[in-house]
Design a protein around this nucleic acid. Structure first.
Lengths: 192, 192
DNA sequence: AACTTTGTACAATAAAAATTGCATAGATTT
DNA sequence: AAATCTATGCAATTTTTATTGTACAAAGTT
C-alpha cells in the first residue's frame, strides 16, 4: 500500500473518531449541561489519556479560561477528576470512561441537588400551613383551602421520596438487576 | 373572625400556592427545559382546570405569542395536551396532574429522541469502519485503529441499548415494582 | 359577505449564557 | 528573591436563547 493511501485512511479514521466525540457531546446535552461540557468529555474520552487545560484549549481552539471553568463544572458534576501526573506541574483531567457510569453520575448529581432544595421547602410549607390553620377561627373557606394544600403537600412529599429512592436505586447499582448492561464481547470480530 | 383577618389568611394561602408553582417550575428546569415551561406547568397544575392562552398570558404577564410557543413545546414533550371545551372557541390546555407521570414523560421523551438519532449514527459508523477496513491493505497502524474503533462502537451500541431498555423500564411501569410510589393517605389529617 | 376572534409566523428586541482577555495570586524553578 | 509558570477571578464581549409586537390566515359569528 502506498504511503499516501495509508495517510488517507488514517485521516478518515481520525475524522470518524472526532464524530464519536461529537455524539458523546450531543448525548450530554440531554442532561441540560452546556455543550462545551459534552465536547470536553468527548475529547478527553477519545484521547484515552488525562489532558491539561492547555491540551484542551489547543484541541478546542477555545480559551484556557473557559477550559478551567468547564472542568470545574465537570468535577462538580462528578464526571471528571483531577489526576496528578508526576514530573508535570500542570493539572491533568480525566473522565469516567464508562458511558453508563457517566449517565448515572449526571443523573444522581442533578437530582440529589433538587431533592435537597425540596426538603427545606417541604418543611417550610408544612409549618406555614399549620400556622394558618391555627390562626383560622371558623372560616370554612380557609379551612377548605388549608385541606387542599395539605393534600398537595403530601403528594409533593411522596413525589420527592420517590425520586430519592430512584436516585438510590441507580447509585447502588440495583438498577442493573432490572436493566442489565450487555457486556460487549471482548474480542468481537478479531479473527474475521 | 373578622372579614379582614379571613382575607389576610386567604391571601397567605394563595401566596403559598404560588410558591408551590415556583417549586414545580424549579424541578422542571432539571430536565433542561426552559424555565417558562416549568412556570406554565406549575400554573396550570395549581389551577386544576384547563387554561387558555389568554388565561396564561394574564397569569404570567407574558405575551400570548410566547404562551403559544411554550404550550406547543410542552405538547411535544408529552406533558400537556389540548382539551376542547364545548361552548368556547378558545383552545384549552391541560397538564398531567401526577408528578411522577410527568417525570417519566419528560425522561422518556428526551431520551427516545437521543436514541433515535444515535441508531442512525451507529449504522453509519459501522459502515465506515467496514469500508476503511476493506480498503486497507497491510498497514498495521490502520488495522490497529480500526480494531480500536470497532471496540468503541460496540461499547457505544451497548450503552444505547441500555438506555433504550431503561426508557422501556420506565414507560412500561416496571420501574414501580422496584421503586414504588408511596400513596399518600387519602384523608390524612381530616379529623384533627 | 363583512366583522370578530383566535392562534401563530416572522422579524425585532431584550435577557441570559457562553466565551474571552487581562490581571493576579500562589506555586516552582533558577 | 527574581523569574517563570499555572490556574482562576473578574469585567467586557460575543453568541444564543427567550420574549415581544405586528401582521395575517383560518375559522366562527352576525
Amino acid at each position: 500500500m502506498t504511503v499516501e493511501k495509508e495517510a488517507e485512511l488514517l485521516s478518515q479514521l481520525s475524522e470518524t473518531e472526532r464524530q464519536i466525540g461529537d455524539r458523546i457531546s450531543d448525548n450530554m446535552s440531554t442532561f441540560g449541561v452546556s455543550s462545551t461540557i459534552g465536547r470536553l468529555l468527548g475529547i478527553i474520552y477519545m484521547n484515552r489519556e488525562p489532558m491539561t487545560l492547555d491540551d484542551l484549549a489547543e484541541a478546542t481552539g477555545m480559551s484556557k479560561t473557559r477550559m478551567s471553568q468547564v472542568m470545574r463544572e465537570m468535577i462538580a458534576l462528578n464526571i471528571a477528576e483531577k489526576e496528578h501526573i508526576k514530573g508535570s506541574r500542570k493539572e491533568h483531567y480525566n473522565v469516567e470512561n464508562d458511558y453508563v457510569q457517566t449517565f448515572i453520575s449526571l443523573f444522581t448529581t442533578n437530582w440529589r441537588e433538587v431533592i435537597s432544595k425540596n426538603r427545606m421547602f417541604a418543611k417550610k410549607l408544612q409549618q406555614e400551613i399549620n400556622e394558618i390553620e391555627k390562626a383560622n377561627n371558623g372560616s370554612y373557606e380557609v379551612k377548605a383551602k388549608v385541606e387542599e394544600l395539605r393534600k398537595e403537600l403530601s403528594k409533593w412529599v411522596a413525589y420527592y421520596n420517590w425520586i430519592n429512592n430512584l436516585v438510590e436505586f441507580f447509585e447502588s447499582g440495583a438498577i442493573f438487576e432490572s436493566v442489565p448492561v450487555e457486556t460487549p464481547l471482548e474480542n468481537e470480530g478479531e479473527d474475521k
